[in-house]
């Protein structure tokens, strides 16, 4: 599904990603961990197409397409979803209108007719239940006045609405209390299917108690320095990153 080869990216002339290689297949869950400043969020942003970052070398193929050639919106329409670490507030634009537009733009890209208002409302109701999102929030402006937990639930709600092939969740667990964490993680698990894939970026092992990864990668100074299975996360929780970093150096 996703094939990243020797990906280099920089921001303002400073190189952040220094040769990332990653293969993600349908049905897999990958976790990316690593110390602060290792390039985790940059990697997510580059996949989504954030123009702040300049790709200087390497390639990213997604479902047979050169992802780096696509605009931000076309990457989204092709099935790449980014759960933001800091979801953005959009005053004056209601969640319902925002989602209706997004869902229908994506449908248009796939050659489908726009959803009728009735079908859209049904879809909203069904998906708000997945993340136990207060349905009143869908009448409010996007993320405006949402608590930290609500913002993160709202990201997973949007993921549920858009049904992406590849979901990249950028520190979705940060700032969540244990209940919200459980709800968000359970939501992600419920949405997981053999034909989609998830990349979870996290600092903490505790998210991986709920979302069980097939692979755990450790990112350090813009490179994946180690890959293991779910037990790696536990080991990292106990021992930190130093043993890997020392090995690497």
């Amino acid at each position: 599904m996703l094939s990243v080869k020797n990906l280099h990216a920089s921001v303002g002339g400073k190189e952040i990603l220094r040769g990332i290689d990653l293969e993600v297949k349908a049905g897999e869950v990958h976790a990316i961990m690593g110390p602060n400043g290792s390039g985790k969020s940059t990697f997510a942003s580059v996949l989504a197409g954030n123009q702040k970052y300049e790709v200087t070398a390497g390639s990213v193929m997604f479902e047979g397409m050169n992802l780096l050639d696509l605009s931000i919106e076309n990457r989204a329409r092709a099935g790449v979803f980014l759960g933001f670490q800091y979801p953005v507030e959009i005053p004056g634009v209601s969640m319902a209108n925002f989602m209706k537009l997004a869902v229908n733009e994506q449908r248009k890209y796939r050659g489908l007719d726009p959803l009728s208002s009735g079908d859209f409302l049904r879809l909203m109701r069904e998906k708000t239940a997945v993340v136990e999102l207060d349905s009143k929030l869908t009448n409010r402006a996007v993320n405006e006045g949402f608590s930290g937990g609500e913002k993160k639930k709202n990201e997973i709600f949007q993921m549920a609405m858009l049904d992406p092939k590849l979901a990249i969740l950028d520190e979705t667990d940060s700032g969540l209390d244990i209940d919200a964490l459980r709800i968000v993680a359970t939501g992600v698990t419920k949405l997981h299917r053999p034909d989609n894939a998830t990349i979870v970026i996290t600092h903490y092992q505790r998210l991986l108690d709920y979302i069980v990864p097939d692979f755990v990668h450790v990112l350090y100074k813009g490179r994946i320095i180690h890959t293991g299975d779910k037990t790696l996360a536990l080991k990292l929780e106990e021992q930190g990153y130093d043993w890997l970093i020392n090995d690497y150096q």
């Binding site: 605009s71 931000i72 919106e73 329409r77 979801p87 953005v88 959009i90 997004a102 949007q158 858009l162």
Partner: peptide, 11 residues
């Protein structure tokens, strides 16, 4: 905000 909306598929 523009980036956020585009990431959801809105041009």
């Amino acid at each position: 905000a523009i980036y956020y909306m585009r990431q959801r598929g809105i041009d």
